[in-house]
Amino acid sequence: MSGHAVDKLAIASYVTDDLPQRKRTELETHLRECGVCRAYYEQLVRERENFLDRFPFEQSTPSRPHNVVSFPVPSRLYAIAACFLVLLTGVWIYYASQKPDTMRIKGGSDIRVVVQGIDGTIEERSSHIYYPGERIQFIYSCADRNNFMLFGLDEKGTLTTYLPAKGDNSMTLTKGADIPLPHSILLDDYIGNELFIAVFSAQQLSVSNMKQYIMKQYTDAGTVDTIRFKKTNNFIISSILITKQIREK
């Protein structure tokens, strides 16, 4: 080992007993000679002991991430959602019967929004008026596993991908009714219209292709509140337009 450049990967591998024998002997010799590397080695050993004391295996079962916020949904909403689902299913059956066999989107898909106000109250808002600082949680219902993307488009034409959180492929939603999406969204100080665009599809779609499609629709329409997404054989778009205003005191 040359000089005093701490080979952290090798030391970590040594601590986890993954270093090949030849390198192991070499590192042990180096650790006896180099105080800097020895200090790092001792630090890792301490970290392992502290870790196992604090998070023993029995308590380490995977848990729901704490940053995922779910709001309780009033039972009345379930009834409304059920009626809506029945209606949507009827509409879907009608449209499915009109469409060619290439239509593969399974079941009715719907997205709604629940709002947590600044004072902590939770409601499903009937008006399109929202305020900065409020947190919105999207709730979806779909009758079968579907692929999904969620975008936000503001009046300036800024398109934000909210879901999937990473990668270029749409995420998968499990079937069910009134299931919260993995993240809530804190509304920032931007004042104006914003269109939330939920894309349901049977096949996995590319986020970048969908963004191009949305931007083309936006360019054609000119404004976010006049965009009309046409039905296609590959995906269904459900959009929600909100208007953010400054709260009057």
């Binding site: 970590a12 986890t16 890792l44 970290e47 502290n50 870790f51 196992l52």
Partner: peptide, 9 residues
């Protein structure tokens, strides 16, 4: 027990 502390770190 072998790798948890590395990941957590």
């Amino acid at each position: 027990e072998k790798y948890g502390f590395i990941i957590y770190g």
